[in-house]
Design a protein around this nucleic acid. Structure first.
Length: 948
RNA sequence: GGGCGGAUAGCUCAGCUGGUUAGAGCGCCUGCCUUACAAGCAGGAAGUCGGGGGUUCGAGUCCCUCUCUGCCCACCA
C-alpha cells in the first residue's frame, strides 16, 4: 500500500498542488441550469453567495481572509450537503483608488492624466488592470476558495456596464435621479465630490475665531456698532452673504433688517433672522456662507440669498476672494486672521475642539463645496410605484403581514443599525469627478441646455434635435455598480424567457457575508437597488415578484473586525498589519482558516493571535498522524491477510446491537459531533463548529478511540483477526467520515488524506464533492439512541473513568510511569461487565498488572471512587509528600465544606423543594451525598497523614 | 448629543430559553523520547464571572445603577 506519509505534516508540500487542481478541474463551476448537466450531482436546493468584490487594486488582508474563510466553509458545507452551490467571485473597479494608483505611476513617469487626456488615461488604467488587476483573486485561488471561476466578473465588464446604464436611465425616467447644485463633500486632493459615507470625522483641536462685522447705516457708513460672529473656518467669510441671528434674541432685536459691512471685501450683507440659529453657541450670531456649508446653504435658500463660491476644486481661493485669490485655503486663513487683527476686527480666538471631516480615501480634509452633482432621490415615491427606494429597503427587513422577514441579519442587532440608517437616509450623491468609472449616460445640449439621458449614445438632443451635444464628464460612484451586482451578475436587465435560468435559480442569493464597515456603503445600496429593479422582473411563472423574492439576499451575516493580538486595529501606519499570506506560509492555510473560524463568534472582534494558529497547526499534524497510524495498521493487517475493501468505506454502515461496544460507542460519538457541527453552521457559529470538530477528533477519536484500538489490535496469525478487522474497518470509516466533516474547515489536509485513503483512486474527484456526513434523524436515533439505551455509552464511560482514576492515583501515589501495579476493584455489576470486557485495554493504558474484584466497597486512604459505580485501590505503598498532601487536602476539605453547606441550605428550603424541577432536586441530593463522602474521605486522609 | 456592543482562569475566548460543584485552547507546574504525532502523552494548579442593588426557591445568565472599554450614527457655526 503506498500510504507512505512523511512523519510530520508539511502543508506547503501539498497546498499548491490542490489549489491548482481545484481550479484546473473546474470543480466548483456551477453552470446555468439547463445548459448542461453537472457531472457531480448537486441538483438540490440552490445556495448562492456573492463574494464582496475586492478592489482590483487590493491585496489580500486578514479581513478578506476571514470573510472568505467563512464563505468557503459555508459554501463547501452546503455543496457537500447536496445544495446546488454557487459562489460567485469578481472584482470592483474602485474608481478613486484605482485612478489614484495609476496617477501615482504617471507621476513617477513625469506625466499626468491631464497630459495624457481622458481617453488615453482610461486606456492606461485598463492596461494596468490587465497586468496587475487579478492579484487578489490569485491569492484567493491559492487559499483554495471554492468559487466558480468561470463566472468571474469585473464591475466595468461590458455586461455589467449595460446593467449600470439601464439602471441609471430607468431611475432617471422614474424621476428618481436629478441633477443640481448642492453642497457636497469635496475632496480637494481627489478633486471630486464624495458621499457622506466617504467622509470620516476626526476630533481636531482647532480654534473658534470671533470676528466683528461693522453695522452700517443706510448710506453704507459704519455706525460704530459691531456684530460679532464666531467661526472655525475664517477663510469662508469671503463667501459670506449674510449674518443670521435668532429672531427672539434680544441682543440683536434692534438690528433686524440692518446691514453689515463684510470686512476685508467691504461687501454689504444683511442681518437675517432664523430659528435655526442657536442663541447659546458662540455669540449667537452666525455668518452665512451658502456655498461652503450645508446649513448655511439651506438657510440661504430659505432667505433667497445668493451663493458665492470662493474656492476652486483644489481648495484654493478663487477670483471671488479678492486679494486672497490664488492662496491655499489654510494660507488664506492665516492671512485673513492677521489682516482682521490688524484692522482691530478680531474680537478673540478661543481653543475649540471639533470634528473635522477627512476623505476616507486620502485623508485630506474635506471641504463642503457648492457644486453641480447627480443624486438619487432615495426618499421619493416613484410614479406608479407608490413607494420610495428607502421605504422598500426598510420593508425588506421588517416582518411582513405573515410575520416573516424577507431579509434576516445575523447578529440580529445589525437590523437596528441598518434601519436607523435607512430611516434617516439622505439623497445619494452618485456623481464623481473622475475619469475611471461608468460615465454617466447623459448628454448636455449646447443649444437648449437640456439633458438627454439615453440607453444608446444619442446623436442629437432629444429636446431640440440639435447635434451640438456633449456627454456628461462625471462618472458614477463605484457603489452604484457594485450595488447592482446581485441582479447584474445573473443577467439583469436581460431577463427574458430564454435567458432567465440563472436569475430564476440564483436570485435572491441565499446569503451575504460581509463586515459591518460596508453595511451602508454596499449592503444597504444593494438592498435598495436590488429590490427596486428585481421587483420589475416577474417570477418564472409570470406572477408578480413579492418582496421576499426581490431582496438581493435572504440572509446577511455580518462578521467582526480582525485585530492584532493586542486588540489593536491593524493599520499600515501602526505597522501591526498581519499579512495572511505570511502566516499561511508559516503555518499552512488550513491552520489559519481554522484559527479564524474558531475565533469567529458573532458580535465580537477577532484578536488574531498566532499562538492559536500554532495550536491549529498542531491539530493538522495530529490529524495527519492519526491517518498515518491507521494506514500503518492497515498495512500490518494486510500482512496477515486482513483485506479491507476501501471502495465502500464512505458509506455509513448500519450499526446495531450486533456490533461491539467500541464500534457502537465510536459511531454514536461521531454522529453526535457531526450533528452538532451541522447545527452550529446553520447558525453561523463557526467557533462552535470548529470546537466540536476539534474536540471530537482530538479527545474522542485520538485520545480514546485510537488508544483503545492500539491496545487491542492484534496481528498474530493465531489472534482474533476478525476483531482486528472490525476495529480497523471502523477506524478507517470514522477517519474517512471525519475528514468529510472537517473538509469545509481544512480543505487541503482533508483532500490529501482522503485521496490517500483511496490509494489515489477515490470514488470522486474531490472530497469537496462527497457528501457531508450528517445522517438522517432516523439513523441518528437508531445509532445514538441505541447506544444510550443499551448502556453502551455508560459502559464505555466506566472503563474510561477507571483508566483515568488509575492513572491519577498512580501519579498521586508516586508510582513510576511504567511500573505495572495490581489493583483491587469493587464495582456494581454493569461496571464490572465493562471492566471485564475491556480488561486488555485497562491493563495496557492504566499499566495495571492485574485486577482483583472484591465484594465490599473499598475504604480508607488510597481509594479512588466513582460514585455508585465502583471503588478501587492500587496495591502499592504510596510515596506521598506529606506537606503537599496536607495542603491539598486542607483546600479540598474547605471546598467540600462550602459545597455541602450550600447544598444543605438549598435542600432545607421548602420552597426550593416545592418549586424546583424534580431532576434538579434529585441532582442536588446526589451531589450532597457525594460531597459528604468526599469530605469524609479527605478528612480521614488528612488524619492519617504523619503529624507535622 | 443619540444608539449599540464588551468586561468570565496569566492570555484569547465559549457558556443556548436562569437549574446540580463555570468550560476550552494557549501559557504554567509535575512526570514520561509508551515504535502515529515532543507540533506528542499522562497527571495537576489556577476564576469571590467589573462594582453595587434588585427579581427568584435558585443569577455568570433577567432588571436597575455605577465604573472602565470598544464601535456606529449625527456634525452648532
Amino acid at each position: 500500500m503506498p500510504h507512505d506519509l512523511p512523519k510530520a505534516y508539511d502543508p506547503t508540500a501539498i497546498e499548491d498542488h490542490w489549489a491548482e487542481y481545484w481550479v484546473r478541474e473546474k470543480l466548483f463551476e456551477q453552470p446555468t441550469p439547463g445548459s448542461g448537466d453537472k457531472a457531480d450531482g448537486q441538483s438540490g436546493e440552490q445556495f448562492s453567495i456573492l463574494l464582496p468584490p475586492p478592489n482590483v487594486t487590493g491585496r489580500l488582508h486578514m479581513g478578506h481572509m476571514l470573510n472568505q474563510t467563512e464563505m468557503d466553509i459555508l459554501t463547501r458545507w452546503r455543496r457537500m450537503s447536496g445544495y446546488r452551490a454557487l459562489w460567485l467571485p469578481g472584482t470592483d473597479h474602485a474608481g478613486i483608488a484605482t485612478q489614484m494608483m495609476v496617477e501615482r505611476q504617471l507621476a513617477a513617469e513625469n506625466t499626468s492624466r491631464e497630459k495624457l487626456g481622458r481617453e488615453a488615461f482610461v486606456e492606461r488604467v485598463w492596461e494596468w488592470k490587465r497586468h496587475y488587476g487579478g492579484a487578489i483573486l490569485d491569492q484567493m485561488k491559492r487559499l483554495g476558495a471554492s468559487v466558480d471561476w468561470s463566472r468571474e466578473y469585473f464591475t466595468m465588464d461590458a455586461r455589467l456596464s449595460v446593467a449600470v446604464r439601464e439602471a441609471f436611465v430607468r431611475l432617471y425616467e422614474q424621476g428618481l435621479i436629478y441633477r443640481g447644485a448642492y453642497i457636497v463633500n469635496w475632496c480637494p486632493r481627489c478633486q471630486t465630490a464624495i458621499s457622506d459615507l466617504e467622509v470620516v470625522y476626526d476630533e481636531h483641536k482647532g480654534h473658534l475665531w470671533e470676528i466683528r462685522y461693522p453695522v452700517i447705516d443706510e448710506a453704507g457708513k459704519d455706525t460704530g456698532e459691531f456684530v460679532t460672529i464666531a467661526t472655525t473656518r475664517p477663510e469662508t467669510m469671503l463667501g459670506d452673504v449674510a449674518v443670521a441671528v435668532h429672531p427672539e434674541d434680544e441682543r440683536y432685536a434692534h438690528l433686524h433688517g440692518k446691514k453689515l459691512r463684510l470686512p476685508l471685501l467691504d461687501r454689504q450683507i444683511p442681518i437675517v433672522t432664523d430659528d435655526w440659529v442657536s442663541r447659546d453657541f458662540g455669540t449667537g450670531a452666525v455668518k452665512v456662507t451658502p456655498a461652503h456649508d450645508p446649513n448655511d446653504f439651506a438657510l440661504g435658500e430659505r432667505h433667497h440669498l445668493p451663493s458665492i463660491s470662493v474656492m476652486d476644486a483644489t481648495a484654493q481661493i478663487n477670483e471671488n476672494g479678492g486679494q486672497y485669490a490664488g492662496l491655499d485655503r489654510y494660507v488664506a486663513r492665516k492671512k485673513i486672521v492677521a489682516d482682521l487683527e490688524e484692522q482691530g476686527l478680531l474680537a478673540g480666538v478661543k481653543d475649540h475642539v471639533h470634528n473635522v471631516g477627512h476623505c476616507d480615501r486620502c485623508k485630506t480634509i474635506v471641504e463642503p463645496r457648492l457644486s453641480t452633482q447627480w443624486f438619487i432621490a432615495v426618499n421619493k415615491k416613484a410614479e406608479g410605484r407608490g413607494v420610495s427606494m428607502a421605504e422598500l429597503a426598510i420593508a425588506a427587513v421588517k416582518a411582513g403581514a405573515d410575520g416573516n422577514k424577507a431579509m434576516r441579519f445575523t447578529p440580529e442587532m445589525y437590523e437596528k443599525t441598518y434601519l436607523n440608517w435607512m430611516e434617516g437616509i439622505h439623497d445619494w450623491c452618485i456623481s464623481r469627478q473622475l475619469w475611471w468609472g461608468h460615465r454617466i449616460p447623459a448628454w448636455h445640449c449646447a443649444k437648449c441646455h437640456k439633458i438627454t439621458v439615453a440607453r444608446q449614445d444619442p446623436s442629437a438632443c432629444a429636446h431640440c434635435s440639435s447635434g451640438e451635444i456633449t456627454q456628461e464628464t462625471d462618472v458614477l460612484d463605484t457603489w452604484f455598480s457594485s450595488g447592482l451586482l446581485p441582479v447584474s451578475v445573473f443577467g439583469w436587465p436581460n431577463v427574458t424567457a430564454e435567458t432567465r435560468a440563472d436569475f430564476d435559480t440564483f436570485y435572491p442569493t441565499s446569503l451575504l457575508v460581509t463586515g459591518f464597515d460596508i453595511l451602508f456603503f454596499w449592503v444597504a445600496r444593494m438592498v435598495m437597488l436590488g429590490c427596486w429593479f428585481s421587483t420589475d422582473v416577474p417570477m418564472a411563472d409570470g406572477t408578480p415578484r413579492p418582496l421576499a423574492e426581490s431582496v438581493p439576499f435572504r440572509e446577511v451575516y455580518i462578521h467582526a473586525l480582525v485585530r492584532d493580538a493586542n486588540r489593536e486595529k491593524m493599520s499600515k501606519t501602526k505597522g501591526n498589519v498581519i499579512d495572511p499570506i505570511e502566516i499561511v506560509k508559516q503555518y499552512g492555510t488550513d491552520a489559519v482558516r481554522f484559527t479564524l473560524a474558531s475565533m469567529a463568534s458573532p458580535g465580537t472582534d477577532i484578536a488574531f493571535n498566532v499562538a492559536r494558529t500554532e495550536g491549529y497547526r498542531a491539530f493538522a499534524n495530529k490529524i495527519w498522524n492519526a491517518a498515518r497510524l491507521i494506514f500503518m495498521n492497515l498495512e500490518r493487517g494486510a500482512e496477515v491477510g486482513i483485506a479491507i475493501d476501501v471502495s465502500a468505506i464512505g458509506e455509513v454502515p448500519e450499526i446495531g446491537s450486533n456490533d461491539s461496544d467500541f464500534v457502537r460507542w465510536l459511531w454514536s460519538e461521531f454522529h453526535q459531533a457531526a450533528r452538532r457541527v451541522d447545527e452550529s453552521l446553520q447558525n453561523y457559529r463557526f467557533d462552535e463548529a470548529a470546537s466540536v470538530v476539534y474536540q471530537f477528533f482530538w479527545s474522542t477519536f485520538c485520545d480514546r478511540a485510537l488508544e483503545f484500538a492500539k491496545a487491542r489490535l492484534e496481528y498474530s496469525p493465531t489472534g482474533e483477526l476478525t476483531r482486528t478487522k472490525q476495529i480497523l474497518t471502523t477506524l478507517l470509516q470514522i477517519l474517512e467520515a471525519t475528514l468529510r466533516m472537517l473538509s469545509p474547515f481544512m480543505p487541503f489536509l482533508t483532500e490529501e488524506l482522503w485521496h490517500a485513503i483511496y490509494n489515489d483512486k477515490p470514488p470522486l474527484r474531490s472530497i469537496a464533492l462527497s457528501s457531508y456526513p450528517v445522517v438522517p434523524t432516523g439513523v441518528f436515533d437508531r445509532v445514538v439512541g441505541g447506544a444510550f439505551n443499551d448502556g453502551v455509552q455508560i459502559r464505555m464511560k466506566d472503563s474510561w473513568d477507571l483508566i483515568s482514576d488509575v492513572l491519577s492515583e498512580r501519579k498521586h501515589s508516586g508510582v513510576p510511569e511504567k511500573e505495572p501495579v495490581p489493583i483491587q476493584v469493587h464495582a456494581i455489576a454493569i461496571a464490572r461487565t465493562s471492566f471485564t470486557a475491556n480488561v486488555d485495554v485497562i491493563q495496557k493504558l492504566g499499566h495495571v498488572s492485574s485486577i482483583e474484584y472484591v465484594d465490599n466497597e473499598l475504604q480508607g486512604s488510597g481509594v479512588f471512587r466513582n460514585f455508585s459505580r465502583y471503588t478501587g485501590r492500587l496495591l502499592y505503598e504510596p510515596k506521598i509528600d506529606a506537606a503537599a498532601e496536607r495542603e491539598r487536602l486542607t483546600k479540598e476539605i474547605a471546598k467540600y465544606d462550602k459545597g455541602l453547606a450550600a447544598a444543605e441550605r438549598q435542600l432545607g428550603n421548602d420552597s426550593f423543594l416545592a418549586k424546583a424541577p424534580a431532576h434538579v432536586v434529585e441532582g442536588l441530593r446526589k451531589q450532597e451525598m457525594e460531597t459528604r463522602l468526599l469530605l469524609e474521605k479527605a478528612r480521614s486522609a488528612l488524619a492519617s497523614l504523619p503529624p507535622q
